[in-house]
Design a protein around this nucleic acid. Structure first.
Length: 453
RNA sequence: GCCCCCAUCGUUCAGCGGCCUAGGACGCCUGCCUUUCACGCAGGUAACACGGGUUCAAAUCCCGUUGGGGGUACCA
């Protein structure tokens, strides 16, 4: 039997790292097992769903290199869910209820669920009327979860939940159960925040006549530093934002995979093909995992350095701009090897190349004092300025000049020169990029620095 | 409150009864390389939450405690 899995985002926001991770694990499993990966947009809640976000989800998935074999939209399939729900009513598996939420609260209190008040009241269709599923009073509903083992709920703790809103629109459980059955989904891989809805879906599915159910695998949640579920509100987690900041999709994908799972041989950073090969849902760690941006940065740096210089130039070019716009392609190409070794994210590139492509940056005050306060500095700068007009304009000659001055004076001359010319005490190599600057420009920078001492 | 889940270095993954004086990675610290930084290289730091069992033997199995999280909607 070919495996069929699905990723079912609700288009109520941008794709975030938690969703991306779910999509990724599903995709990996499908690709590994030669199965089918279905993208199913769960947009039954018209009030909250925004159609334009579907495109954003597509884009983020594509960016991550996650492709899908089939796509559905639940809003196109309403009639099936409606039919399923009304059949439940006809068969006595569900019933109409006209209790308001306040009515229910008044009867059962703050902390209890619905009390089954309308089970036998034969409520007729009308405004404010919902349909509730009649849950069993005893017995248990459970499943063998691939990552958690046996999970069971006493049916007595399951209230008669709403399956059709008073607007007539079925709830997601119904759509979910119907579609998983109709689409022949064999494995459901999703976040742990959905475990509690699983017994409902199982019950619904059974009522629809299914004799079996998909294999479930509930992924551990990704949490923030407070150990809380990543949320779109508090946490900066939209996949698109990571793309904008210059993370590589392959790094993000690889990193996401090490959250809750890891290759047995401890080699974390490796080609996606190998990862697909090694991956197994049953090996997923059930404990929540912290999204560690520092480690992601490390992965990203590794992936950046893995690129050929040509690829790096090509892919990072959109980030390689100064205030004056795009950087000269030839110049960027020449600077690229040094940039590539230093950037952990593409967004760091402008700061790295600023002194070469858009004039002298304002010196960092603290670094300036530390470097330029040394006794030999005025003399170092004077001697460099003295010879700058006659030196051959090559990196070798410039290096010889500056280091030579240092030797004459028995002092370190590279750092003061760097500070004068780049405004920073660290960054790209000094001499090669310096040779890219105009002689007049360099002279001016040196004199400005000298005057500033 | 009720239901469900989780528990190994600061973080993350490994460990599925003996190979563990617990391993890899990130971070952090040291040194080497280098007249910057980074890269690279060599070291170091640091954990089985607690208490009971079971067993010849437990990080690994069971129970409890504690701690954390998720759910508890006419959202998904």
């Amino acid at each position: 039997m070919t495996t069929r899995v699905r990723f079912s985002p609700a288009p109520t926001g941008y794709l975030h790292v938690g969703g991306a991770r779910s999509a990724l694990f599903n995709w990996l499993f499908a690709r590994k097992s030669g199965g089918v990966f279905v993208l199913r947009i769960e947009d039954t809640d018209a009030d909250r769903s925004r159609p334009e976000l579907v495109d954003a989800i597509h884009n983020s998935l594509e960016w991550l290199g996650i492709d899908w074999d089939e796509e559905y939209r639940q809003s196109d399939r309403f009639e099936h869910y409606v039919a399923a729900a009304s059949e439940f009513v006809d068969r006595g598996l569900a019933y109409r209820c006209d209790c308001s939420q306040d009515d229910v609260k008044a009867r059962v209190g703050e902390n209890a669920g619905y009390d089954g008040h309308c089970r036998a009241r034969d409520v007729q269709p009308g405004t404010g009327v919902v349909v509730r599923f009649r849950t069993p009073d005893d017995g248990v509903t459970g499943w063998d979860d691939l990552v958690r083992g046996r999970v069971e709920f006493d049916n007595a703790t399951l209230e008669d939940f709403v399956i059709v809103r008073s607007s007539g629109v079925p709830m997601f459980h119904v759509a979910n159960a119907y579609d998983d059955l109709d689409m022949g989904i064999t494995h459901v891989v999703r976040g742990e925040d959905l475990v509690n809805t699983t017994p409902r879906v199982l019950l619904l599915r059974e009522a629809m006549g299914a004799e079996d159910h998909p294999t479930y695998a509930h992924l551990p949640l990704i949490v923030n530093e407070q150990r809380k579920k990543l949320s779109k509100r508090r946490d900066d987690v939209a996949v698109g934002d990571y793309a904008d900041r210059g993370y590589l999709p392959e790094a993000m994908r690889n990193y996401l995979l090490t959250l809750g799972w890891g290759p047995k041989d401890d080699v974390e950073i490796r080609p996606i093909g190998e990862l697909i090969e090694l991956f197994d849902l049953a090996d997923i760690n059930p404990a929540p995992a912290f999204f560690d941006i520092k480690k992601l940065d490390h992965f990203n740096g590794e992936y950046i350095r893995m690129l050929s210089v040509e690829e790096f130039v090509e892919r990072s070019r959109p980030f390689a701009s100064g205030p004056d716009g795009a950087v000269d392609p030839g110049l960027y190409q020449r600077l690229a090897p040094w940039v590539q070794e230093r950037a952990r994210r593409y967004e760091e590139i402008p700061a790295l190349i600023e002194w070469v492509v858009s004039g002298p940056p304002e010196p960092v005050e603290k670094d300036w004092r530390k470097v330029m306060g040394k006794e030999a500095v005025p003399e170092i700068l004077d001697r460099i300025i003295e010879r700058i007009d006659t030196v051959e304009w090559t990196s070798d000659a410039l290096s010889e000049l500056i280091l030579g001055v240092g030797e004459e004076l028995g002092a370190k001359s590279q750092l003061p020169a760097r500070m004068a010319i780049t405004g920073r005490r660290s960054g790209l190599p000094l001499f090669e990029p310096m040779a890219e600057l105009e002689r007049d420009d360099v002279r001016t920078r040196l004199k400005t620095a000298r005057g500033r001492l």
